[in-house]
């Protein structure tokens, strides 16, 4: 009995907000004005849910860091962790493929291993010593979140590109102590006014 998990983990995956696509490098790809508004709305939404959040983990890419900076204002005192494994990339060749985005094999090989490592690090049932339910926020990127969803639900990983996520949206995974996984929401952005909703 001591070796059985007892608690539930709730993982809220947030896609970063809209950012400047024209930046030369990652540090130049900062949030747009609308992106900052989206992050404010997501932060307000998370606060309104009234949950006791345990940790805020974010990708080390600039757009995720800026999104985390804004959201964390609404969750004062929350522990923050930056993670390179959560950086955007090409997790696995999608099926069906699309014409306007074709990374080479090396990209899939490198990014795929890294994103899978991120999945194994963050998406699992509670440890045996966890006694209470936890609520963890992970701020990262669309490809990473979609891949996580496919893997968590044991759907074919190649189907990750069949889903779309809005900027600042919330994807909620619940993992029971039994290992059962429930996708409660996928890409929820209903809390944003329609004119504030973007995908690219």
């Amino acid at each position: 009995e001591n070796k059985k998990p007892k608690a539930t983990r709730h993982i809220l995956l947030i896609r970063h907000s809209q950012y400047n696509l024209n930046g030369h490098s990652d540090k130049d790809r900062t949030l747009t004005g609308l992106g900052q508004e989206q992050a404010e709305l997501t932060g307000q939404r998370l606060a309104t849910l009234g949950l006791k959040y345990d940790v805020l983990i974010h990708s080390s890419m600039t757009r995720a860091v800026e999104t985390a900076n804004i959201i964390s204002k609404y969750i004062p005192g929350i522990q923050r962790v930056s993670c390179d494994l959560l950086r955007e990339g090409a997790p696995i060749e999608p099926d069906p493929p699309i014409n306007h985005w074709k990374p080479d094999s090396v990209q899939y090989y490198e990014d795929g291993a890294r994103i899978e490592a991120a999945f194994r690090r963050y998406i699992h049932r509670a440890e045996t010593n966890q006694l209470e339910d936890t609520y963890e926020i992970i701020i990262c990127h669309a490809n990473v979140i979609r891949y996580f969803v496919c893997r968590a639900l044991q759907f074919p990983s190649e189907g990750w590109l069949r889903m779309g996520l809005n900027h600042g949206s919330i994807t909620w995974l619940t993992i029971r102590p039994s290992g059962r996984v429930i996708l409660r929401t996928l890409g929820d952005s209903g809390f944003m006014p329609p004119e504030k909703v973007t995908r690219s």
Partner: peptide
């Protein structure tokens, strides 16, 4: 072994029985 197409209960390598 999970049946083909079935749910793998040890998907996160944390199933106590394993």
């Amino acid at each position: 072994e999970p049946k083909k197409g079935g749910w793998d209960t040890n998907w996160d390598r944390r199933e106590p029985a394993f």
